[in-house]
Amino acid sequence: MKHARFPFRAPTWPAGLPRPAPERRVGLEYDHEWSRRYPVRLARAIVLDNVTRPAARLIAPATVRGAEHLRHVASPVIFAANHASHLDTPLLLTTLPVRFRHRTVVAAAADHFFDRRWKAAMWSFGVAAIPFERARVNRRSADVAAELLGSGWNLVIFPEGGRSPDGWAQPFRPASAAYLARRTGRPVVPVHVNGTRHVLPKGGERRLPRRSPVSVVFGTPLTPDEGEDVRRFAGRIETAVAVLADEVASDWWDARRRAARGGTPSLRGPETTGWRRSWALDPRPKAGPDPWPSI
């Protein structure tokens, strides 16, 4: 192979001619239309139900609550969840009721998941990801998301714009779920995912997940009120998720009463800085019995 000559190997570019920049087909420009064709959807459904779902069950046995809120909701909807771990996406997809599961796309950060063609292809296939600008409204990505919502696809989106750096939530950005809901008129379902940071935290030296139980709670769908601006609506979604978090930590009734009083603990943690902020996080749930005999 070393000695193969031109017709049998790719031509080299003449040094005298300028080499044009490559066409950028990654990031927001990535063409993901293929990932919603029927054969691909079928293959994804098979993988999701037979590989991803058992794998997620194994490393993160999930308690799912509030799925009844989805029973009477007309598809498509926007699922807005807090975000602490890469595990959130597969976990959420595999816990959605079947009615939604195989007709849902996931808004994923264009800079992280779509920076290389193979990564883009992997995420597009695996979780039907579409590239999305993290921080602000990007005409192209918002158009695509709105168009998909219009054509009957549900959307999973993490309004924080990225995983939490310290375990507490970041502010929910208006440029995501709230904006799309306003634009398309579709309802937003608040979702709270708890415990995934114990399985696979952001950063750190650990690359392998560590088994730990998690919970997923769906809330009642929200729609923007008449004349409510996007920023306010984003705040309302965040509060709705916070109430779900409170419900996990205590119980439904206490959480409702605190919500009514406006006393729901913030998702963003205590106002203090440093160790006390981390200390206030809930500890890792007690591990079950060790599967190995201790010797």
Binding site: P201, G274, W275, S278, L281, R284
Partner: peptide, 14 residues
């Protein structure tokens, strides 16, 4: 120290 203490202090260099 347990995971709780480790995770609250180690990442912040404390």
């Amino acid at each position: 120290l347990g995971d709780r203490i480790y995770e609250a202090f180690a990442p912040n260099g404390l």
